[in-house]
Design a protein around this nucleic acid. Sequence first.
RNA 1: GCGCCGUUAGCUCAAUUGGCAGAGCAGCUGGCUCUUAACCAGCGGGUUCGGGGUUCGAGUCCCUGACGGCGCACCA
Length: 500
Amino acid sequence: MTDEHSTPPDADLPEQLRVRRAKRAELLEQGIDPYPVEAGRTHTLREVRDSHPDLPPDTATGDRVAVAGRVMFQRNTGKLCFATLREGDGTELQAMLSLADVGEETLASWKAVVDLGDIVLVEGEVITSRRGELSVSATSWRMLAKAVRPLPVAHRELSEETRVRQRYVDLIVRPRAREMVRARSTVLRTLRRVFEERDYIEVETPMLQVLHGGATARPFVTSSNALSQDLYLRIAPELFLKRAVVGGIERVFELNRVFRNEGIDSTHSPEFAMLEAYQAYATYDDMAELVRDLILESARAVFGSTVVTHADGTEHDLGKPWRSVTLHASVAEAVGQEVTIDTPAETLRRIAADHDIELKDSWAAGEIVLELFEKLVEHTLVEPTFVRDYPVEVRPLTRQHRDDPRLAEAWDLIIFGTELATAYSELVDPVEQRERLYRQSLLAAAGDPEAMQLDEDFLRAMEYGMPPTGGMGMGLDRLLMTLTGLGIRETILFPLVRAE
RNA sequence: GCGCCGUUAGCUCAAUUGGCAGAGCAGCUGGCUCUUAACCAGCGGGUUCGGGGUUCGAGUCCCUGACGGCGCACCA
């Protein structure tokens, strides 16, 4: 190890770090381990609180406990010290050290070495203070983990960057950060529960893939030394889940990470959690019912109700009936004139021009209608809305509509103006599927980085016969954003950040 | 990828026209046996993101790089 990489001498450290290291050293000199292996805790703060509700002020219970927690506030008078301890779930409890009970030496040592942020054990009697605060009145205390770096100011917001880069600090000082971790876990559990109740099987499919497919997006590329070839981090689990359906796993879902090498902003992360589910002998209508159940059950699990608060502060009851509208009808409503699958491209171009929407020359009617929807309609759909029946040219992997072959049996669920989930009646005709994938592979060969490669093995699977199947996809991070009204970096515990 | 804005004490932020770099919390010293963002008195703490330039003098102006935020593009 060179000097450059060794521990910097204390003299180079900021004052507060030096001071805390000195206190650690002081404990060691006294023969006290500042990081003992055995904590000796007998009760959690929560347990003490729960077992002593509503005590009147100035009560001595006679109950002896040893509690542990991080020191969040300190209020020291000459012969009486108060500290607020906090444990992982945010529960706080006051510790009191009185000269009369602990003696001069112990009190002095407490004042000398305990800083905000330290994790300590306090052993004593459960009492209430004269002001009525439930407390542990110490007979002894012990350092469990000396913090050598000071906590940030507890009563001011951390900067956005520090919150994301040092999430461990964010979790210590900001209750909402802790709540989000628990909300995410609750939603994960709830989604799995709903699937289990519907006899779905959870599977894990490859994240490292030899071929790039399943959606249109730019992949991350890596390489295998053993295979001497490039591998792709998956952009979607779709093609493997469909193989599973072919094999007879008729109700299957996967809830795990996908990776897309695209923009990073308040609604996009390069890695995000994707839920996809496929159900044999079901259609996109069945998947709509499933998705509604997944979202409502998640809301109930997190909030105890279906009412959620959007980023702008408005409350919305997701439990009310959800609207369903065709893509063309939604556009027609927005532009105030008839728009259907029969509307010619020239007419649609005129409508776009009237609304100052730029179009590519190569676009056909279907692509123009979708552009009109995205520019004029999508952001206006605040309440949950299924937008359904897209032109086939914009949904190349979806089965043709049973009533009109120019349409695809697909819907997007829009909430708060953004897409939350999508579903199809899946294309299961292997001949048709081969043609469409072949056209995609031509685009890929021509240099379109988002286009899929031709996956012969996937096509071979379909040739064995895939039952009529409904499929859905939903971003977990998006769901949490919808439920909590927060940005995507708040819903991900440790979002990707550039190295400092 | 392009444009705009930002980076100052451990944390959150000030600093007029280019003229001695400041506050609150945190820290240190002393005081205080019922505080709870405790209080009172005193003290210390800075490579003003890095590099270069203009100037008698740069936190401030110019060039350049790093990192971040917002907008656009792409996307779920």
